[in-house]
Nucleic acid binder design. Structure first.
Lengths: 154, 154
DNA sequence: TCTGAAAATGGACCTTT
DNA sequence: AAAGGTCCATTTTCAGA
C-alpha cells in the first residue's frame, strides 16, 4: 500500500479535477491509460481515494453564509461527548466537525442560509444540549480558500 | 438560473458520489439520461457545480495532523491584509482559509505531516509576517465530519 | 502494452407543453 | 421557446491476452 511518484502525480491530478479522462492523465504522468486505470482502481479500493464528488457552490443554492463555531463543553464524560458528536454530525448544516484539544472542544464549520437560520440552529445544537458551557461564533466575511486538497508534490 | 427540484435532486446525488452513471441518476430522479446530461452540463456551465474532484485521504499520504489556527492581525490596512491573504492561500498546507469577523481575523484549516511541520509553518506564516498580533492553535484529535456538502433537501 | 468489447457520454432530431 | 424523450455516433473504461 505504498505510493510511488506515479500514484502521487495521479492523486494530485484527480483531486484537482476528477473529470479528466484516463488517457489524458496517462499523457501527463507518462503512463498508458490501462496503467492509469489499474492504479486509480487500486487507490480507490485501498481507500486512498475516499470518494469522488461534485463540489456545489453554496451561494448558488441559497446557502450564502459560512459560520465557524467553537464549542466548549461543561462535562467531558464520554457518553455525553458522544451524544454531542452525534448531534453535530447529524446536522446537515454542519459541514465539518473537529474534536480539538485546547480551550474549546469542538470546532464546527456551518453552512446556513442566513443569520436567522444560524440563530435557530444554536438553540437546537447548543442551548438545548445541557452540556455546552459556552460557544464562540466567527462569521466568515470571505471564504478565501475552500477545498479538501492535500499537498502531494510538496 | 433558477433550480427546480430535479436540479436539486441531481446536485444532492452528485455531491455525494459523482461516479454514478447518468442513466442511473435518471432512474433515481425520473428523467432520461439525456435530460440528466443536459442538466448537469448546464449546472457546471453556470458554476453551480464548481468542480468535480477526488477526495484523498490525508492520512494515507502522510498528512495525519489537522490543525485549526485563528489569527489576529496587528494592522487592518488593506494592502497588509491582502498580502497576508495571498501568503495563506499560496501555502499548500493551508487547506481552507476564512476571513472572519470577531475577535480573530482569519481562521485556517491546515493539513500537516506532524507537529514539527506545523511549528515550521507558524514561523513562515505568522512570525515572519510582521502583521500578526497573535494566533491560537487548535489541534484536532478527531476529524469527526469532513466534507463540503451543502444541504439540498432540507 | 496492446486490443477489443461493453458501457457511458453527449449530440441530433423530433415531440410535447 | 423550453425542456423531455429516443436514437445513434463517439468516447471512455476496463479486462484479457
Amino acid at each position: 500500500m505504498s505510493l510511488d511518484s506515479f500514484d502521487r502525480a495521479l492523486l494530485d491530478a484527480v483531486q484537482r479535477d476528477a473529470t479528466t479522462a484516463q488517457h489524458a492523465l496517462g499523457e501527463q504522468v507518462n503512463l498508458s491509460s490501462a496503467a492509469v486505470n489499474r492504479r486509480l482502481k487500486k487507490l480507490t479500493a485501498d481507500g486512498v481515494i475516499r470518494k469522488t464528488v461534485a463540489l456545489v457552490d453554496p451561494a448558488s443554492v441559497g446557502y450564502s453564509l459560512t459560520v465557524i463555531t467553537e464549542v466548549q463543553v461543561e462535562n467531558e464524560r464520554l457518553d455525553l461527548l458522544d451524544a454531542m458528536k452525534r448531534t453535530f454530525m447529524a446536522c446537515p448544516q454542519v459541514q465539518q466537525c473537529y474534536y480539538v484539544a485546547g480551550e474549546y472542544d469542538f470546532v464546527l464549520i456551518m453552512q446556513v442560509k442566513h443569520m436567522e437560520q444560524y440563530t435557530e440552529l444554536t438553540r437546537a445544537l447548543f442551548f438545548e444540549s445541557n452540556n455546552v458551557k459556552r460557544f464562540n461564533t466567527l462569521v466568515s466575511m470571505s471564504n478565501l480558500k475552500v477545498g479538501l486538497e492535500v499537498p502531494l508534490l510538496a
